[in-house]
Write a protein that binds this DNA or RNA. Structure first.
Length: 423
RNA sequence: GGAGAGGUGGCCGAGCUGGCUUAAGGCAUCCGCCUGCUAAGCGGUUGUGGGGGCUAAAACUCCCACCGAGGGUUCGAAUCCCUCCCUCUCCGCCA
């Protein structure tokens, strides 16, 4: 959510942001409604002021045993008018709030201009993918051969897009989660274990709602949502709180499964682990002082890439252009690894700065010093790292001609000393 | 799920037979005074959101709203009525 006063004062900036993100929004209608509401507020408050004054007079008169019926009669119409105005304000304010939730965050000035992912910029590369001296198998074939993935069982249990990991596949998942959480603890994140269903307010707070409702699994009976990422519970941990400025940055990490309906992507990436409805991910969230949040974004990005480097997995970092930025983000880096058999770069992490956009929605503040005014924090988050695509990369890049898969050295101790996945 | 108790300002806690409460009192906070220093004592200060005025912007100032949330009764609601939410205690069910 953007600052209402800022929108009023500097609509040009908002308009430019909308244009950069390629979002259609009738800002003029919004501003008109806003003006209408404020004029109603002015009128209503004037009448309330009168009401308050006269009420005291009535009390005085009654106390003195005098008659106040004339004033009372007159105030009846004033009260009715107040009620009328309040109703109008409420109506217009609800509509205004709904609209305000649909205004996207403004991209940071440093973000490259562009209208689609075509114009994203590669900012960094690490390591090199060695070309395999044989025709690589796609990860789902390797996995089925090794008996570590059971796609059929997944669809029997839950339908297409759900998978079952078996044996060393399950162990590999567990190992990766433990490894990543250990890395992030070292980096100074507090590890949390969070609920996987959250309230509507949480989803609005981190800006998944209202825009992405169709993409979310919704439990109607309780109006709860399955989380699409641990970002939601982690960021909402501090919803409605005023944090101690001296304690910032506050950093959390957690593992969670992530649930996404992937509405509108039917037919894409249907095979293997690339796009599934429930996947595992370790997430990092950072509550930062506004003036250093872009430094924190770089730190967060490095905290994510460190996981890949320790696993000896080459990657590249993409800076998203304005048109490819998500609704709430001001700036965002994607981290991608390459899978040779599917011949695709796979997004395994996304690290974003939301500035105060989520903080306003979720009302997360901080105070620099006692007695000072509270300000909104900046929130950032990044995956560190999403598992299925990482597993796909490991399987496809580390496969051997004999059908085995080499386990990254850093993971061996987490795999009970095992150095290879083999049938 | 059932029964009971309760939700008041940063915290504790009165008010709850509707109008001298524009929320008492205490603690804490910050400022000042006072004592070699500290403690104690004395005086003052202290929230959030919104609208307007003055500003380059603030400071400042005026006003409105906020006693869990939402509705209702009334000229007037923390106080009366209804609905919902949450917390605590007990019971039931359950890994």
């Amino acid at each position: 959510m953007l600052d209402r006063k800022m929108i009023r004062k500097d609509p040009g900036r908002v308009r430019e942001g909308l244009k950069k993100k390629g979002v259609n929004f009738d800002l003029d209608a919004f501003l008109e409604m806003d003006e209408e509401m404020r004029s109603l507020i002015r009128e209503g408050e004037q009448l309330k002021h009168e009401k308050n004054k006269v009420s005291q007079d009535v009390a005085k008169l009654k106390k003195e045993g005098k008659d106040a019926s004339e004033i009372i009669e007159r105030m009846k119409t004033v009260s009715d008018r107040i009620k009328e105005i309040d109703e109008q304000i409420k109506d217009i304010s609800t509509r205004l709030d709904e609209l305000a939730l649909k205004i996207p965050n403004i991209p940071h000035d440093s973000v490259p201009l562009g209208t689609s992912s075509e114009e994203n910029v590669v900012v960094r590369k690490w390591g090199e993918f060695k070309e395999l001296p044989f025709e690589p198998l796609p990860h789902w074939e390797i996995a089925e051969k090794l008996g570590i993935l059971d796609l059929a069982a997944g669809s029997t249990l839950s339908g297409r897009g759900f998978v079952v990991y078996r044996n060393d596949g399950a162990l590999l998942t567990r190992a990766l989660i433990n490894f990543m959480l250990d890395v992030h603890r070292e980096q100074g994140y507090e590890e949390l274990w969070v609920p996987y269903v959250v309230t509507r307010d949480c989803m609005i707070g981190t800006a998944q709602l209202p825009k992405l409702e169709d993409d979310m699994y919704h439990i109607e009976k309780d109006d709860l949502f399955l989380i699409p990422t641990a970002e939601v519970p982690l960021t909402n941990m501090n919803r409605g709180k005023v944090l101690d400025g001296e304690a910032l940055p506050v950093k959390y990490t957690a593992f969670s499964p992530c649930f996404r309906r992937e509405a509108g992507s039917y037919g894409q990436d249907t095979k293997g682990l690339i796009r599934i409805h429930q996947f595992n991910k370790v997430e990092m969230v950072d509550f930062s002082l506004p003036e250093v949040s872009y430094d924190e974004l770089e730190t967060l990005l490095n905290d994510a890439t460190e996981v890949l480097e320790r696993l000896e997995i080459p990657y590249r970092v993409i800076e998203l252009c304005t048109g490819d930025l998500s609704f709430g983000a001001s700036k965002c880096y994607d981290i991608e690894t390459y899978a040779p058999a599917v011949d695709k770069w796979l997004e395994v992490s996304s690290c974003s700065n939301f500035e105060d956009f989520q903080a306003r929605r979720a009302n997360i503040r901080f105070r620099r010093k006692k007695g000072e005014k509270s300000e909104f924090v900046h929130t950032l988050n990044g995956s560190g790292i999403a598992l299925p695509r990482l597993i796909a990369t490991i399987l496809e890049n580390n496969q051997t001609p004999t059908g085995k898969v080499r386990i990254p050295r850093a993971l061996v101790s987490y795999m009970g000393g095992k150095e290879y996945l083999e049938a």
